[in-house]
Computed example of a mutant assay.
Amino acid sequence: MIVLLPMAMAVANRSSPLVLACAALFVLASRLVSDGSDSYRLALKGLRSSALVFAICGIVYPLVTLAWALKPALGLFSWGEAVLPAVSSAVLIVSWRIAPPPRWMVGALATAMLIAAGFIVAELLFKLPLRHLYGGRLATFVHNRPVVTLLLLLGPVLVLIGFHRRWMLCWLVLLATVVAILESESEAAKLGLVAAAGTFALSYAPFVWVKRLLTVVLLGLIWMQPFFGSTVERIMPEKVIEATKAGNSEARIELWKAFGDVSRRYPIFGTGFASSPHMGSHPVAAEIDPAYRTMLNVGHPHNAFLQVWVELGAIGALFLTGLVLWVMKSLSGAPADIRRIGLVTLMTTSAIALVSHGAWQGWWIAAVTLAAALLTLRPAPSQPVE
Rank of each mutant, 00 (worst) to 15 (best):
L5G: 04
G36K: 12
L32C: 11
A336N: 03
P156L: 08
L202S: 09
R166P: 11
P17L: 07
A180M: 09
T231W: 14
L5A: 14
F163A: 15
K211R: 15
R234W: 15
A243T: 06
P85V: 03
S34N: 11
A12I: 14
V33D: 12
T149K: 04
G192Y: 09
V64N: 00
L182P: 02
E242Y: 11
E254G: 13
G272I: 03
G358D: 14
S37G: 11
L221I: 12
W363A: 12
P206A: 05
L130G: 02
K190N: 06
L174A: 14
M224S: 12
L128Y: 00
N248Q: 15
G75R: 02
L76D: 02
W79P: 01
V344A: 03
L218A: 13
L63R: 02
S37L: 12
D337C: 02
I241V: 15
R165L: 14
A8Q: 04
W96D: 03
L84S: 06
V344N: 05
P100V: 00
R234C: 07
R103P: 01
V368W: 12
A90H: 00
I120C: 01
A108S: 09
T271N: 03
V179Q: 05
T140P: 05
P62T: 05
V308D: 01
L153H: 10
F207Y: 15
W223R: 07
G322H: 00
P6M: 04
T376G: 08
L20F: 07
A285G: 06
W309D: 07
L218I: 14
F54A: 03
S37W: 14
L174C: 14
W171L: 15
A196H: 05
R145C: 02
W256V: 13
R378E: 15
K127V: 03
I59H: 00
S230H: 09
A258Y: 12
V142N: 08
E81F: 02
W326Y: 05
L109S: 08
I315A: 00
F259V: 09
T215F: 06
R264W: 13
I98F: 01
A195M: 12
A359D: 10
Y134G: 02
G136T: 01
P206F: 05
L5Q: 06
A380E: 15
L320H: 03
L202C: 11
V327W: 07
A291L: 10
A21E: 05
H357D: 13
K257V: 13
M9R: 01
W96P: 07
L74A: 14
K239Q: 15
A336P: 03
G272H: 04
W326T: 00
V385C: 11
A359H: 09
R265S: 08
L20I: 10
V194D: 07
